[in-house]
């Protein structure tokens, strides 16, 4: 059996914002084909970790390394990371008034295609291509003509994130609380989209508060984050344990161990 390719490797990562330390030595390895869930309380550093992987310039890396497909990505701009196949689904997708969704998506897709040595799609080719992908998130075509995320409901914004994921075909998808603010029907649509887009060659990291998303998407690993580091790693059962006994119990248990 050949060993799996490592997609993401984070080594002893410390990071801060405005001199406030948020990440306190994170270690994480994600191989191709794997789905990882990162759970934790508000302020535990989950979202920060996802934004740092995507390259948000407001954070400073104080120590440690992030490798994506064996390349240290610390010096790469966010767009370079995206073009190499890293995708961040935002917890709060940003509204861009005046910019049509379809125009934005086309520019984004063509940037990625350039990196993959594929030809750029013109307006007509792109329209055809995007229509196929709309079904993945059960989105109506009319969304394409609206301004990016502007006036979208919470669920529509999250579906738009998954549509972008479908179009950009990333190797590593980090989905930051994609389940928050979704009713059960929307959650199922989003989860089924994520399942359809995941494959043996890709890796997915789900950041979530709740176990309910993990009923729809089965993770291979569950990590608990607290105070800027991963304090416990386990399988799906860890999420169930967490739901039953709460963060407090796991935190105490990890202190004892």
């Amino acid at each position: 059996m050949t060993s799996k390719k490592i997609i993401l490797e984070i080594k002893n990562l410390y990071a801060s914002i405005e001199n406030k330390l948020i990440l306190n030595g994170v270690n994480l390895t994600v191989n191709e084909g794997e789905i990882h869930a990162i759970m934790g309380r508000n302020g535990s550093g989950k979202s920060t970790l996802s934004k740092i992987i995507a390259g948000d310039p407001i954070y400073t890396i104080n120590k440690g390394e992030i490798y994506y497909e064996n390349q240290n990505i610390e010096d790469l701009e966010p767009e370079e990371r995206s073009n190499k196949g890293i995708f961040l689904g935002f917890q709060y997708p940003v509204e861009i008034p005046g910019v049509k969704n379809i125009d934005f998506l086309r520019v984004a897709v063509n940037s990625r295609r350039k990196d993959l040595n594929q030809s750029e799609l013109d307006t007509f080719e792109f329209e055809e291509w995007v229509e196929d992908k709309l079904d993945i998130v059960k989105m109506n075509k009319s969304f394409l003509d609206r301004a990016v995320n502007e006036g979208f409901s919470g669920g529509e914004k999250k579906r738009n994130e998954i549509l972008q994921m479908a179009l950009l075909q990333p190797n590593l998808s980090i989905l930051d609380e994609t389940d928050s603010g979704l009713d059960i029907d929307a959650l199922r649509i989003v989860a089924s989209g994520i399942n359809r887009l995941h494959s043996e060659k890709k890796a997915t990291i789900l950041i979530t508060h709740y176990q309910r998303l993990l009923n729809e998407i089965k993770p291979d690993f569950v990590h608990i984050m607290e105070n800027g580091k991963i304090i416990k790693t386990g399988g799906k059962e860890l999420a169930i344990e967490l739901e039953e006994s709460g963060y407090e119990a796991i935190q105490n248990e990890s202190k004892i161990s």
Binding site: D56, I58, E77, E79, S82, N83, I96, A108
Partner: peptide, 8 residues
């Protein structure tokens, strides 16, 4: 940052 994270 949002746009950059989409490769732009």
């Amino acid at each position: 940052f949002y746009l950059q994270s989409r490769g732009i």
